[in-house]
Amino acid sequence: MNKILETINLTMDFGGLRAIDGLDLHVNEGEIVALIGPNGAGKTTFFNCITGISPPTKGEIFLTTRRKDRDKIDGLKPNYITKKGMARTFQNIRLFPNMTALENIMVGQHCRTSSRLIGAIFRNAFTVNEEKLVVENSFHILNRFGLGPYTNEYAKNLPYGAQKRLEIARAMATRPFLLLLDEPAAGLNNRETAELNVMIKSIRDEDKVSILLIEHDMKLVMSISDRIVVLNYGRKIADASPEDIKSDPAVITAYLGEEFVA
């Protein structure tokens, strides 16, 4: 199998606090991997490290693109990493609140387009053409994620569930091959979570995008993931299939405490 994301001995310190401790983690092509662990385990910090938002203290990160180039990406700025094909969502929604839903998607396509200042002023054929494609494409993406009715609404005025979907749609607009989702089901009701389940699968199967997701909703995690990685205090304590994770004593200890281990 092909490891599209691989971290080796990844470590992140905040002053005296070691939020991630020598983490080796990988995602294979076509996989849905769940990253779970108690609050404060370092999951979000892991996302921030690999996406370049807060560069790791130590360790290496490799990304194997669709063209099969294995690139070392630690130390790169977030925008380069996104351009290479890894996109993410945030635990606390970070949309562009005063832009419309459609514009949010259009911004997502920024790194896949190239018209410049001069082109925008003179509206040359290239720019006009590109802009047209961006708009069409954005409508397509919005509709695909069921956001059609909100096209021209400001992102801040969307209902919570729609905002969460818009964030995923925006990340997909950057055309990634690996999508990182930080607690996509948080705050969603049962019906919305079920829809999310279908949506994540369709992203993997139809768009051929691999997925790494952080999630606390165990039902979702168990039903959707091919593999689960468990973090505790920044260390990997388990990395196995959902069935094996359920019965792993280390995991049960981490979540429930010593006395629950059968």
Partner: peptide, 8 residues
């Protein structure tokens, strides 16, 4: 000063 890492 410590370079603060912004919380995300």
């Amino acid at each position: 000063g410590k370079s603060r890492v912004q919380k995300v």
